[in-house]
Computed example of a mutant assay.
Amino acid sequence: MDTNNFSILIQHNRRWDSSGNYVDYDIEGVMYDANTKYEGFINTKSPQLGVDTTIFYLELKYVVSGPSPPIKIHNDMGVQVYLYQKRFNFDFISRYPLCVTCVDKAMS
């Protein structure tokens, strides 16, 4: 197994509800190179998800467990923490999918 590549489930095209659950989403599996930084993820995955980054930005979050609020990934360190957890948790692909929300740049 190549420890620099990870399979990640991405839940996208939907929203967070008032209870902190990501609902009504589409799901897609992607490969991710651990050497890629935050901007690299955005630049390679936005076309795959059909997101025009001139209009939207991608908000990346995942839920660890229980009543904890979603953890936002907004920089290289966040990506590295996420991938570090994945490296040591074999069930990580199904337990911690990456939730991607498109946010209109004009509204933010």
Rank of each mutant, 00 (worst) to 15 (best):
M1Q: 07
M1Y: 07
T3I: 15
N4P: 00
N5F: 12
I8D: 02
L9A: 08
I10R: 09
H12A: 10
N13A: 07
N13G: 04
R14S: 14
R14D: 12
R15Q: 02
S18Y: 09
S18P: 01
S18E: 13
S19K: 10
D24F: 02
Y25K: 11
D26A: 04
I27Q: 14
E28W: 00
G29M: 11
G29Y: 10
V30C: 06
V30I: 08
M31A: 08
D33I: 02
A34W: 00
E39M: 09
N43S: 15
T44V: 02
T44M: 01
S46E: 01
Q48I: 07
Q48D: 03
T53L: 14
I55L: 09
I55C: 04
F56H: 14
E59F: 03
L60A: 04
K61F: 13
Y62V: 15
V63R: 13
S65K: 14
S65M: 07
G66W: 03
P67S: 15
P67L: 14
P67E: 15
S68K: 12
S68I: 05
S68F: 11
P69W: 00
P69C: 00
I71A: 07
N75K: 12
N75Y: 09
D76R: 03
M77H: 10
M77T: 14
G78T: 08
V79L: 10
Q80F: 08
V81E: 08
Y82P: 13
Y82I: 10
L83A: 03
Y84I: 02
Q85E: 15
Q85I: 15
K86A: 15
R87H: 14
R87E: 10
F90C: 09
F92P: 00
F92E: 05
R95W: 01
R95P: 00
R95K: 06
R95G: 00
L98P: 03
C99T: 06
V100P: 02
V100A: 01
T101C: 06
C102R: 12
C102F: 03
V103K: 10
D104R: 09
D104E: 12
K105V: 07
K105W: 07
K105N: 08
A106C: 04
A106F: 08
M107W: 00
S108P: 01
S108E: 14
S108F: 07
S108I: 06
